[in-house]
Computed example of a mutant assay.
Amino acid sequence: MTTRTPGELVAVTYLAAARRAVGANRRQAARAAGLPAHVLYRLERGSSGLDLHTATRLLRAYGITSVQDIEAVTRLLRTPDPAEGMQRDSGPGSRERLAACEKASHTVRWWTAFWIPDLLQTPEYAKAAVRRVLLDSAPGPVPLGLRSLSRRGPRITLLVDEFVLKRPIGGPGVMAGQLAHLQRLVESGAATVRVVPVDCGIPPPGPHFAELHLHRTLVYVDESLGVHYATEPPDRSRHRAHLDVLEAAAASPQESYDWIGRARAALGHRQS
């Protein structure tokens, strides 16, 4: 395995998702990009690095040809500034790249104080949530093909602030539908949802961040202002420490399921 920056992990994962989206296997994709098949295999398996030239050829082979889209991806391959601590993904497609990383992860653990994560949203909630002002580069809802979950998807744990369940994004009807969707995800085993009570005594560490176990690497994602990525050793990760504290303070899965049901019923009363 080659050591990769957070940006390179994101770019490689997104390129693999783009290949699958056009229905090409690795041999077909490599031929379309003018690359030896073993180069693409090693790249997606993590045993070789991704350079700007190869990334551009693959993007064009997958039908991603606009200058802005290509620049947004190749920018991820530049060496991050150590002083910044995290690597920012900005510009067109940043939400799609994040969704690709979430779906490709072995596990995903989210904390949210403001909104339900993209991968768990209903279409109606997504349309309303995209208008949130905290994200300065969200171009629109994540395509449904990326948002949908399958049984072979990541193991998901959502740590959600109590107030998120009460905030009727899109109106009571839309929010009630979103909460019903969360309950179905829990019932199907696609996600574990834990509600963090307001009175737990822990100040929110931030509005929205996640821990992804992606390609044998722990990647931390901060969506406070745009999308920022970092990789840190588990024993030195402030992000992991925050998530551990929140998970310890959260209600049990069954208590949380019942909590969502009560919030959904309260929204129903507001509609009547």
Rank of each mutant, 00 (worst) to 15 (best):
L77K: 15
P168R: 04
G49P: 07
S66K: 12
R31T: 15
R26K: 13
L149S: 11
L77C: 14
L119H: 14
P92E: 05
Q183D: 07
L165H: 02
A33R: 09
V142C: 05
L214W: 11
Q183V: 11
V198D: 10
G63Y: 14
L59H: 07
G7H: 09
Y125N: 08
G171N: 04
G34A: 14
Q254E: 12
C101R: 08
E8G: 10
P154T: 04
K127M: 06
D244W: 00
V221C: 13
P117T: 04
D118I: 00
G7F: 05
L98F: 08
D161I: 01
V39P: 00
T65Q: 06
R262Q: 13
A37L: 08
L15A: 03
C200W: 02
R184V: 09
P234F: 08
E162K: 11
R4T: 13
V10D: 06
H213M: 15
E223F: 03
V12T: 13
L58V: 04
G173P: 12
G171V: 05
T54L: 07
Q68N: 12
V10C: 07
L77S: 15
L119K: 09
S148G: 07
T231N: 01
Q87S: 11
A266M: 06
A241F: 08
L185W: 07
A104T: 10
R4L: 15
G268S: 05
G145W: 14
G145E: 15
V12F: 09
L50I: 14
S48M: 08
G85T: 11
H215W: 14
P207I: 01
A210E: 10
G171S: 05
I169D: 00
S272T: 09
Y125H: 12
P80S: 07
S94T: 05
I116A: 07
V186T: 15
A61G: 03
V245Q: 11
L159N: 09
K166A: 10
R132Q: 07
S252N: 01
R88F: 05
Y125W: 09
L120Q: 12
G34V: 14
I64H: 09
D118W: 02
G63L: 13
R155K: 14
Y229H: 13
P143R: 06
S47P: 11
P117V: 02
D235F: 08
Q121S: 01
D235V: 13
A21I: 05
A138R: 01
E44Q: 08
H208D: 01
V73P: 06
E247L: 05
V67A: 15
F114R: 05
S272D: 10
P253W: 00
A100G: 02
A83Q: 14
R42D: 11
S148H: 09
D199P: 02
